[in-house]
C-alpha cells in the first residue's frame, strides 16, 4: 500500500471516488486530508503545516533549520521543525483542450486533472503558499494570479469547478505567456496530456525553467492511450479536430505503442535534462501519487 496509508484513507484518493464528491473544495479537502493522514507515518512527515516543534540540535542537522531566535533567548540551539512557509508562488496550469476530455473509465483526463489541481491548490494553500491557477487550450481560458489570501483558494476551486473542455491544444503558448509574466521564482505545475507538438511544449517549459521556476509536469494519460486495448475495426475521431481515421487496432497497435512510448520517453529524457520534474500519471491511479511528486519537488526548495 503506497505511503503507508490505510485502505480507508486511500479509498478517498481514488479518482473514481473523488469524482462522486460534490464540490471541488470538498474533493480537494478529501484528497489532501486523506493524503496527509497517511503522510504522518511517512518519510515526508516534515511538510505538514499544522504541526511545529522544536528539538535540541544534534550534530548533522541542517544549520539552516536552527531557530536563532530561540538561541538568542535561551542560548541553546534548537532546530525548528515544520515551520510554516508562505513565500512560494505556486502556479497550477491545467490543460482543458479537447483531448483532455478522453476517459476510458468514469473519469476523464480533465476531471482527473481538475481533482489533482484542486488538491494541489488545497495543499499549497495549506502550506501558506501563494496559489495561482491557469486553464488553457490553445489560449488562456482562465487565469487567477498567485495569492496566499485566505479567500483565494475558494476562487481557485470555484474556477476549477467550472472548467470545461476547450478547443485544440497549444500548450506552449500559455507556458511562454506565464514565463513572461513571472516576477519571482516559484513552482509551476503543469497538468496536461501533452498531446501536442513536443518541441514547442519542451521549449515552453524550458522558458519557464529559464525564468527560475521549478517546474513539475504531470503528464496525464488514460490507460487506453497507453495500452491501446481496442480490437475491432474502428473509426477513430479526433477530439480536437475533425480528423478521422479508420484503423484495425490489431494492425496498428504495435506501431502506436512505439509512438506513444517514444513520446513519453522523449518528454522524460529532455525535461529531466533541464531539471524539470516529469511524471507520467495514469488517470486510473490514485491522486496521492501525484501529490507525493509535488511534495518531493516542493521539498527541494527548502
Amino acid at each position: 500500500m503506497p505511503m503507508g496509508g490505510t485502505g480507508g484513507e486511500l479509498r478517498f484518493l481514488d479518482p473514481a471516488v473523488i469524482a462522486r464528491i460534490g464540490s471541488m473544495e470538498l474533493k480537494a479537502r478529501t484528497v489532501v486530508e486523506g493524503f496527509l493522514a497517511g503522510l504522518h507515518r511517512s518519510p515526508f512527515k516534515g511538510f505538514s503545516v499544522e504541526f511545529a516543534e522544536y528539538r535540541q540540535y544534534v550534530p548533522g542537522d541542517d544549520l539552516s533549520t536552527i531557530d536563532w531566535k530561540v538561541y538568542a533567548r535561551s542560548d541553546r540551539y534548537y532546530v525548528k521543525k515544520f515551520d510554516e512557509e508562505t513565500n512560494v508562488e505556486c502556479h497550477v496550469l491545467l490543460d482543458v483542450s479537447g483531448s483532455m476530455g478522453y476517459g476510458s473509465a468514469s473519469v476523464t483526463k480533465l476531471a482527473y486533472g481538475s481533482f489533482l489541481a484542486a488538491s494541489l491548490a488545497y495543499l499549497m494553500h495549506r502550506q501558506r503558499d501563494a496559489v495561482g491557477f491557469m486553464a488553457f487550450d490553445d489560449d488562456i481560458v482562465t487565469h487567477l494570479a498567485a495569492s496566499a489570501r485566505p479567500g483565494h483558494l475558494r476562487s481557485v476551486l470555484l474556477a476549477l469547478d467550472q472548467v470545461s473542455l476547450g478547443r485544440r491544444s497549444n500548450v506552449a503558448k500559455p507556458l511562454h505567456q506565464l514565463a513572461d509574466a513571472l516576477t519571482k521564482r516559484g513552482i509551476v505545475v503543469l497538468l496536461s496530456d501533452l498531446l501536442d507538438e513536443p518541441d514547442r511544449i519542451i521549449q515552453g517549459l524550458k522558458h519557464l525553467r529559464f525564468r527560475g521556476a521549478d517546474v513539475v509536469v504531470f503528464h496525464l494519460l488514460d490507460d487506453d492511450e497507453l495500452s491501446f486495448p481496442f480490437e475491432r475495426l474502428t473509426r477513430f475521431c479526433d477530439l480536437e479536430t475533425t480528423d478521422e481515421v479508420m484503423a484495425a487496432p490489431l494492425e496498428v497497435r504495435n506501431h502506436y505503442l512505439r509512438e506513444i512510448g517514444s513520446l513519453v520517453s522523449r518528454y522524460k529524457r529532455e525535461l529531466r535534462l533541464v531539471g524539470i520534474d516529469y511524471q507520467l500519471v495514469k488517470t486510473s491511479k490514485p491522486l496521492d501519487f501525484a501529490l507525493m511528486r509535488y511534495l518531493s519537488t516542493r521539498s527541494r526548495r527548502h
Binding site: 476530455g101 475495426l233 473509426r235 477513430f236 479526433d238 477530439l239 479508420m246 502506436y256
Partner: peptide, 23 residues
C-alpha cells in the same frame, strides 16, 4: 463482418503516423 465502430480518441495523430495500409 460488422461496421467499423466509431470512437472518439485523443491521440489520433499518433494513429495516423502508423504506416497502416489503406482500408
Amino acid at each position: 463482418r460488422d461496421a467499423a465502430a466509431r470512437r472518439n480518441f485523443s491521440a489520433v495523430f499518433l494513429i495516423k503516423r502508423t504506416p497502416v495500409e489503406q482500408t
